[in-house]
Design a protein around this nucleic acid. Structure first.
Lengths: 220, 220
DNA sequence: TAGATTGTTAATCGATTAACAATC
DNA sequence: TAGATTGTTAATCGATTAACAATC
């Protein structure tokens, strides 16, 4: 009975933004908002906002706009903020450590239930109250605990091994911080976070701007 | 003499990926590659690869394909890997700490030259050999040192103040890790890295898949 | 009711893919 | 030369924007 129209990735990736802006509006004690006002705040068109929201249902009211609280709750529901996911971090390096300490995730429904590493010196200690376990005990851990998401913060040379292990254990979602594109067959979902890529794009754009300015100067 | 055609963001954001795949090919000692072969490795179409590359010039040769080394060098040049940027980190928390320790950035031309915080207990200590300085000394630091990029890892309630300060000091590029969309007027460039957004999208997709599977089961 | 603003269809724009002549 | 594969133009696809009837 799959009568849902397929929602495009472009729309899905905007959902957390709507969520953030609506949180802000609630904090500002704003009760209603039109797509026009929201579009000005967010820097996108009102048309796009109405199109996006109507992928999921008609949350507004003609002549009135959107009730902020209601829309916030609908977006939360769509994003599944109420549902909880158990996450494990593989790789207790600097990034793994930073993520384990990031309290925002818990607020959004993501609990870190375990951290795994290969380094005997780290195993047994804790980060933010979460025990660092031996990667060799991962099988055992997964057998005893529901694990929804694996957060990958291992060096690139370990990625393939770890990915193989994770998927063979039946974990079907990976949040990947290693600088490699995980494109797994089957039904494993991957979100790649490529920090270096993002920084390189910033560098590219910055240099472009400098070049532009130089050209402007020449033409003066 | 601005005869460059405007390159779309979609293309620019793929450049670091090309760069990564070409690095891999060099490591594998592969000397030449056709757009077809590369497309299979990268999971995009050969057509797109040829279109993308031809935004910057004709790097291939009919009947032969692309010389890996040469293409790698051209992409490096386009991305400005040879150029260096001085970066400062604002916010010596967990994320700031992780980024300061990330050796990859230096390899790609980004040097962390200073870390700033407001916390007296942190000021004076070092991360990865870089001194943590008082945020109040930022003006002074920027006056004495060229700063190209500010990396923002401060809590959200500090973002506006810090952003104001950064831009008033003439820093024109911000790599923003705080969960707020910096959309600055003028000619300041911003790359937003919204980790929570990325995780929420993963959560959304994971739940969607679970729902799909349940539907499949019902239909069995 | 009149004014405002949605939900939705149609038009536009841009990005991706296909096709093929050029050429190595 | 014949085969291969690019560079590039044209076709398609999808996403964004505009328009407006529906309706609160």
């Amino acid at each position: 009975m799959n009568d849902e129209k397929k929602i495009s990735m472009a729309v899905i990736r905007r959902l957390p933004r709507y969520f953030r802006y609506l949180s802000d509006l609630i904090k500002l004690d704003i009760k209603r908002i039109s797509s026009k006002e929201l579009s000005e705040r967010m820097g996108i068109t009102a048309s796009q906002i109405r199109q996006d929201l109507n992928c999921f249902g008609g949350f507004g009211q003609q002549g009135y706009g959107y009730n902020v609280e209601y829309l916030y709750e609908e977006i939360s529901r769509i994003l599944g903020i109420d549902k909880r996911f158990n996450c494990i971090i593989i790789g207790a390096g600097n990034m793994g450590n930073a993520l384990a300490n990031y309290e925002n995730f818990k607020r959004r429904g993501f609990d870190i239930t375990g951290i795994f590493d290969i380094d005997k010196r780290k195993i047994g200690s804790s980060i933010n109250g979460i025990r660092i376990l031996d990667i060799n005990d991962l099988d055992d851990f997964v057998a005893k605990n529901q694990v929804d998401i694996a957060i990958l913060t291992v060096p690139i040379n370990k990625v393939n091994d770890v990915t193989g292990k994770i998927t063979s254990l039946g974990i079907r979602a990976i949040w990947n911080f290693s600088p490699s594109d995980l494109r797994l067959g089957g039904d494993t979902i991957v979100e790649n976070v490529h920090l270096s890529d993002s920084l390189m794009v910033l560098g590219y754009r910055l240099r472009e701007k400098v070049i532009e300015k130089d050209i402007d100067k020449e033409n003066e």
